[in-house]
């Protein structure tokens, strides 16, 4: 596969360093130790989420079975045993009051939390790119209309609208899909603004003019010339949106309009756990800690992606700028 093809596939050609492509991006990313560690954590979490039923089966548990014998009913349903009932059967202990296995709920919860965030981010990016590009390339009228819509979108209070929307949609509509649609549908303005501004700037550059002079159509130019160049800022922005979307899902579930029981999500688990911080601390610490680690990892990774795609930052890393040799020397 030629390098040019790779670039197109990964869609990762940065604005001012279009030549060296995806391989260079990976090298720059790998050079950042924190970002590499964060990427490993994120990968692990995604794998755990994908393999949730498998992992739960491995532990011999499922997320929905009640184990009343594992909680002390007379004491409010606090898990029996130390550290919230952690043991060979229940690796992370059990949920107070119900005795449901926490390991199974945590990994199944990861599916919802991460899945919703992925879907919402993809939606935000797609809407943002389409609207931003259309505004930049369309006539003035279209630009004005789309820009106003974007402004309005910026002004929308995400949580308030989400609370309202989630409360009116009939409960038969699949909840995770709905939450992804709501978060994605409300919070795309940032992407669209970035895309529009970048596309307007790129439009005046020589390679775009050349393409135009060669007689290519507007949308062909958008696809072939602008999109690859927009990849860097968009991916960077998406990497920062993603952890935000995780916390929004958690917040919505925490406020009781998110995922419906018995489906677990980390935010929903946090809601249930908030009163238990003194009597069963592990119950609260697990989802809280996982959310923290996930969001932190994703933020660090996002920052790493940004650095890897930013030529100025990359030059500080001394990678992909023809000065790698020196880095190696320094390292040795």
């Amino acid at each position: 596969m030629s390098e040019a093809l790779l670039v197109q596939e990964a869609g990762a050609a940065p604005l001012a360093a279009p030549a060296s492509g995806a391989r260079q991006f990976w090298r720059r990313l790998r050079a950042q130790r924190a970002a590499t560690a964060a990427a490993a954590v994120v990968l692990l979490l995604f794998l755990a989420a994908l393999a949730a039923p498998l992992l739960a089966a491995l532990a011999g548990q499922d997320p929905d079975t009640f184990h009343p014998e594992l909680v002390d009913s007379a004491a409010g349903g606090v898990p029996r045993g130390s550290f919230g009932g952690i043991g060979a059967d229940h690796w992370l202990g059990v949920e107070p009051q119900t005795g449901r296995d926490l390991f199974a709920r945590i990994v199944h919860g990861a599916r919802v939390s991460l899945g919703v965030a992925v879907a919402a981010t993809l939606l935000q990016v797609t809407i943002g790119v389409v609207v931003g590009l259309a505004a930049a390339l369309g006539n003035r009228r279209l630009d004005q209309v789309l820009s106003r819509i974007t402004d309005i979108n910026v002004a929308l209070p995400l949580m308030v609208i989400a609370l309202g929307l989630l409360a009116v949609v009939p409960p038969s509509f699949p909840r995770p899909v709905l939450i992804a649609l709501v978060i994605g549908g409300i919070n795309w303005a940032g992407t669209s603004k970035i895309v529009r501004a970048q596309a307007l700037a790129l439009k005046t550059l020589d390679f775009v003019s050349a393409a135009r002079l060669s007689g290519r159509g507007r949308w062909s130019i958008a696809r072939r010339e602008l999109l690859p160049s927009l990849a860097a800022p968009v991916i960077t922005y998406a990497a920062l949106l993603f952890p935000v979307n995780i916390t929004v899902e958690a917040a919505l579930s925490f406020l009781g309009v998110g995922i419906k029981p018995p489906t677990p999500s980390w935010g929903q688990m946090l809601t249930e756990a908030d009163t238990w911080y003194q009597s069963a601390p592990t119950y609260l610490l697990l989802p809280a800690g996982l959310l923290f680690v996930t969001v932190l990892s994703l933020t660090v990774l996002g920052e790493g992606v940004r650095t890897a795609l930013d030529p100025r930052a990359a030059s500080r890393l001394s990678i992909g700028t023809g000065r790698e040799g020196r880095t190696k020397e320094q390292a040795s």
């Binding site: 409010g76 238990w276 003194q278």
Partner: peptide, 12 residues
């Protein structure tokens, strides 16, 4: 009232 989690703490 005492909730379940508070009862768990008080019981101990």
């Amino acid at each position: 009232n005492l909730g379940p989690a508070e009862l768990a703490k008080v019981s101990g």
